[in-house]
Amino acid sequence: MSVSEKHASTAANPSASNKQAPESTEKTHFGFQQVDKSAKASMVAEVFQSVAAKYDIMNDVMSLGIHRLWKRFTIDCSGARAGHKVLDLAGGTGDLTAKFSRIVGESGEVVLADINDAMLRVGRDKLRDKGIVSNVKYVQANAEALPFPDNSFDIITIAFGLRNVTDKDKALASMYRVLKPGGRLLVLEFSKPTSEVLNKVYDAYSFHLLPKIGELVAKDGDSYKYLAESIRMHPEQDVLKDMMQGAGFEQVTYHNLTGGIVALHRGFKF
């Protein structure tokens, strides 16, 4: 039985063009299904528990390696420099943390935070194997209630993590709280392709090919079915921009990458 089947209470009407996921006070979406809000975090955790070991290789296979360029673009837009304190939220296997660690240097600090201990463990082992130890801390944390004092970080990044958060508004507010005045939040996330043709090709790829690749490589097609569904349920570019502004972020802009398949949102706290 799949992760989604175990926890789904009612099935939602699947729609690939949802502008924003409808979220009642009791229910939220888990892919195309409606589930209890209290259950989503553990269901997402199971997904990532299942794919943690093959996470990096699956990212390379699924995106043909382009995810590395999306992450580079995020770092290039971060304005990170020596001495900065960076929070890599939902940092998973530590791709962004590794580079941030070298940029901020000994005088700076990077906190790799993830709600999932399996992902955190994979990330910690990977970074230690690369010799990255001195200026990186590992924290298991829920983005909705970040365990850090107010105004702690110069930069916060969340790459491919926000769509898995149950209450996104709460998470954005929490990020705003721990960001220093003058600091910036960067949200790298799957989004809505800008071209209809690309949208159709992307749909076909996501719903037909992706689960099969997941089954083949990670031996877990259901988790990658969830991935495709969760992307469609994630707020599209302008909606997320409004949500960030609603949380208090200013000068919010976004860049569409690879035709809008992915978007990088950036907002400042002043």
Binding site: I75, D76, R81, I103, G131
Partner: peptide, 20 residues
Amino acid sequence: TFSGQIDVSALERNEEQAAM
């Protein structure tokens, strides 16, 4: 950026990056 290795970033030339 120099550390135990060299990291290379591509910065777009706009006002925001000028400050950087």
